[in-house]
């Protein structure tokens, strides 16, 4: 476990082996700085590494810059007047900092945006077809069957209009749609947002299965740190546009600070209300 002190401290994950294979760095961000509208500095030298075959959790409070991080990785910043002004992002050993969003999908990364963003007026099947836009017709027909097999619920609802599905069903659809691009790296921005606890468990079950059964690498943002650290191999904690803490998920779970601020457990082990946590947060920051 290492506590970063402003300067990036990669290497702790032991995931910087170049080249392919499990354990090698699939994605790495190096001192990335992001500015919106030319003035709003959101990421301040963020560095993180996602090793191939792992589930990596990115945690942090509201406004820390988690979504911005995923947008920077998937190339969505220009559509929001944002820009990577410093640092590099590399994927499979290639610098993709300036590559356009569509190209990044072709190279093997897929993002499931915060708030699901299914195509509301399209049917479930059409949503999935749209997800396979970068692939050939034959491949996508095969993948469609696989997604239906993986999410049997979606198969039953293939003709339904996506906008009328429940939140949990929409989340499955959003994940299924992202899988249709056949990514090597799947990025999920708060997949549990607005879902009942049982559904959250179901969604994380799916994420874990995807990782173990197909070797898919996953980078997931979560507010629910407990749930995320249960399934993740590695975790990063963000504050104000920087990584302030990182380590194997098992270690993070035991870290007293993490327990207190993110798992909602006080010294005595009892559950604290979110309000208390917020209050603490104001007094004591990570740095």
């Amino acid at each position: 476990m290492s506590t970063a002190t402003g300067t990036p401290s990669p290497g702790t994950s032991g995931a910087l082996v170049p080249g392919g294979g499990p354990g090698a760095a699939l994605l790495s961000l190096n001192n990335v700085e992001v500015i919106y509208d030319d003035v709003i500095l959101v990421l301040r030298g963020l560095s993180l590494t996602v090793a191939e075959g792992q589930i990596v959790a990115l945690l942090g409070s509201n406004g820390a810059g988690k979504s911005t991080t995923l947008k920077a990785v998937s190339g969505l910043l220009p559509s929001e007047h944002g820009e990577v002004t410093d640092g590099t992002i590399s994927f499979r050993g290639e610098d993709i900092t300036r590559v356009d969003a569509a190209q990044r999908v072709t190279r093997g990364m897929s993002l499931c945006m915060e708030g699901r963003h299914v195509f509301e007026h399209l049917s479930v099947a059409e949503n999935l077809v749209a997800g396979a836009y970068t692939r050939s017709g034959k491949e996508s027909a095969e993948d469609l069957d696989k997604v239906y097999e993986f999410f049997p619920k979606l198969a039953d609802m293939r003709a339904r209009i996506a906008g009328y599905l429940s939140g949990g069903e929409q989340q499955m659809l959003a994940i299924g749609r992202a899988l249709m691009a056949r990514p090597t790296l799947l990025m999920l921005d708060e997949p549990s947002l607005g879902l009942a606890p049982l559904l959250v468990q179901e969604i994380f079950g799916y994420i874990k299965r995807l990782n173990t059964e197909t070797g898919l690498t996953v980078l997931v943002i979560e507010q629910n740190a407990r749930r995320a650290l249960e399934v993740a191999d590695h975790g990063y904690i963000m504050e104000q546009g920087r990584i302030v803490l990182e380590g194997p998920a098992a270690e993070l779970r035991e870290n007293p600070d993490v327990k207190e601020f993110y798992l909602g457990l006080g010294e005595e082990g009892g559950r604290k209300s979110y309000r208390d946590v917020k209050h603490y947060k104001r007094r004591k920051r990570w740095l």
């Binding site: 559509s79 969003a101 195509f119 077809v129 396979a132 836009y133």
Partner: peptide, 23 residues
């Protein structure tokens, strides 16, 4: 068709369409 569906996808949600690699 793939392009027809992509067009309707863009009409629905541009940013989400971009995450599918749709230009």
């Amino acid at each position: 068709s793939r392009h027809g569906i992509a067009m309707r996808a863009v009409a629905d949600d541009q940013q989400a369409a971009m995450t599918m690699g749709i230009s």
